[in-house]
Design a protein around this nucleic acid. Structure first.
Lengths: 122, 122
DNA sequence: ATAGACCTTGACATCAATGTCAGGGTCAAG
DNA sequence: CTTGACCCTGACATTGATGTCAAGGTCTAT
């Protein structure tokens, strides 16, 4: 299968497929004319990549366990847990920071409105 | 006051002070030798900039109301409310997205551990 | 006059996945 | 043989505040 078809079947752009290859996530063989030639199984690989990217993982992190999860169930791949836990910690830190900013914004909006309401003609 | 002293008094790097100037947030006059010359009042300006940056606002947004809030109370500056509200909406969207990812991560971690525990010697 | 602390401008690097363009090859159908 | 759809590589842009370096000017104290 050529790259255009893979792109169409997975909904991933040709550009991104080449990028995933550059990051070591997929390794198509080459036809005689230089075109990339993908196994039909690569569709599943790309779907997996999409899934992990949607979890906020980087291509580098995905590269660390992708081979394993493609051959086994996730539970068999010990490499994946530290990644999940690291990402979870990052996400929670970000949520906390955003929540703090949100709180500050709400305070300032409230103060703004209180001052306008309380002193309408000062 | 020269840039080094302003940096020291505000805890903001010399690099950032120049950047704020480039973004139109501060406008020091120049000494005869070309050195930037800041009014002592600029310390307050920079403190305000720090505050708004910490709320997640961009220098461009800050530029839109900084002159007003330096002369008046915030409640007097109508320009600021749309900015606060836009930022609040962005923050809440981000929190929601991160919360969704967090939920997905927790699900996968739980599934991982359940599979290991449930089938320890499969 | 020289060292050293301070200032200047300009430029590149950061982070990461993706879009987009340029310049050029391949191939099948007409 | 030409058109058009598809492919290739390589490169720059995006986003935004900040770090850092280069090359050089200023000024003070020795």
């Amino acid at each position: 299968m050529r790259i255009g078809q893979l792109a169409q079947e997975t909904g991933v752009s040709v550009r991104s497929l080449r990028y995933y290859e550059q990051q070591g996530l997929i390794s198509p063989i080459r036809q005689e004319n230089g075109y990339r030639d993908y196994s039909p199984l690569t569709v599943h690989t790309v779907e997996a990549i999409k899934l992990y990217l949607n979890l906020g993982l980087s291509t580098e992190q995905i590269a660390g366990f992708l081979t394993c999860v493609l051959r086994n169930k996730e539970a068999f791949c010990a490499e994946i847990m530290p990644v999940y836990e690291k990402k979870l910690a990052e996400i929670e830190a970000q949520i906390q920071q955003l929540t703090q900013i949100r709180s500050n914004l709400l305070d300032r909006i409230a103060a703004f409105q209180a001052e306008r309401a309380g002193k309408p003609d000062e």
